[in-house]
Amino acid sequence: MASYEARRLENIKRNESLVKGLGLRNGLRVESKDQSPQPAVVRHPSSKRPKLSTSQPTRISARIANATNKPNYSEDAGGDPSYTGRQSRRNASTSQQHKKEKLPLSPNLDLQPHKDIEALKAGWSSWVAVAELPTRDDEGNYHFESHPIFTPNKSPEAMIREGSFGGSYWRPLYSRRLRTTISDDWQELPTSWKDGISVERYLASPTYNPEVNKYGVACGQSIEEWEAAGWIDHRYDVRGWFQWYCRFWLGRRCEDDERQISRWRKCVGATGRWRRALLKKYVQNGVRTVTDEDDEVDEKKEVSPVVHQTCHHWAWEVRQEALDRFWSEGT
């Protein structure tokens, strides 16, 4: 045991001498005063790798740039004049676009609520026709002697019978500007326009039904939204564009005519944005013939039904002569 204890003590001394030579104390390295401390090394766990920072591309392909988003047309931006009963979901960019394209209001428009609502309502229906019904040319365009530049090719009656505004244009309408509900004004329409159709389905449906529309799709904004934006002149037509068109067709003339016709021209006139957009789609799709709905294949259904329905709401549809000219001249 004496020899074993002697060897053990000798080993302890040798190890202490070795530790001292390495500069360690209790297993830890002792830094000298003239030696600056080394920064600690932080190791990331293998499961969490640092993210690479990437920049967004600065160029957009032509295909993406030219892609057509689902339209949500403002009335004065040249889009669909109406549909009622659907809530609009506009993103920020669309809202900014509306603000940019918004036309100035009629200079004579009184934005304050009318005190005498009954007198105002009486004015809507007490007008007297001062102009004759329009004539029609060989291409199907209508001509109004008082306004030669206004040449729609759909009559109000045809628009109603073929299906427009989701069947809800003449539904009971609460005007926040006038603080009253307008209803039953569809009754002023000529009896011949309503014969044989369901008023509840085609005129005064409480909800918007896209299946009623000629092209089976929904588009546009509600009358409430146009009113909030200041696009309705309440002195004449509390429901906006189509109500104006019905009364203009029947011979009424008023101070709002120029504004409404100007809007029509920007939409579907000779150089109107939606007219040209639709004709361009025919060319892009290689479609040269406008077929009738009674035909076995209706090519109109294959070329942007939403833009077709929008143009239909503005009393215009593609006719063969217009399509032929666009194919040959691009106008």
Rank of each mutant, 00 (worst) to 15 (best):
R7Q: 02
L9G: 09
K13C: 03
V19Y: 10
V19P: 06
V19A: 00
G23V: 04
E31S: 13
S36M: 09
Q38E: 14
P39F: 01
A40N: 14
L52S: 13
P57V: 04
I60P: 04
A62M: 04
I64E: 06
A67C: 03
P71L: 06
A77S: 12
A77C: 08
G78V: 05
Y83K: 15
R86V: 15
S93P: 00
T94W: 02
K102D: 07
H114Q: 13
G123Q: 01
D137I: 01
D138I: 02
F144D: 00
S146P: 00
H147G: 02
T151R: 08
A158C: 13
W170T: 01
P172F: 10
T181F: 12
W186Y: 14
L189E: 01
S192V: 05
D195R: 13
I197L: 10
R201Y: 15
S205K: 05
Y208P: 04
N209T: 11
P210A: 15
E211D: 15
Q221H: 03
Q221F: 05
E224M: 03
W231V: 06
R235M: 14
R239A: 05
Q243I: 00
W244S: 13
R247A: 14
R247Q: 11
E258S: 10
E258T: 14
Q260K: 04
G272T: 01
R273I: 09
W274E: 11
V283F: 08
T289L: 05
V297N: 10
E302G: 15
S304W: 09
S304M: 07
H312Y: 14
R319N: 02
R319M: 06
R319A: 00
R325T: 05
F326E: 04
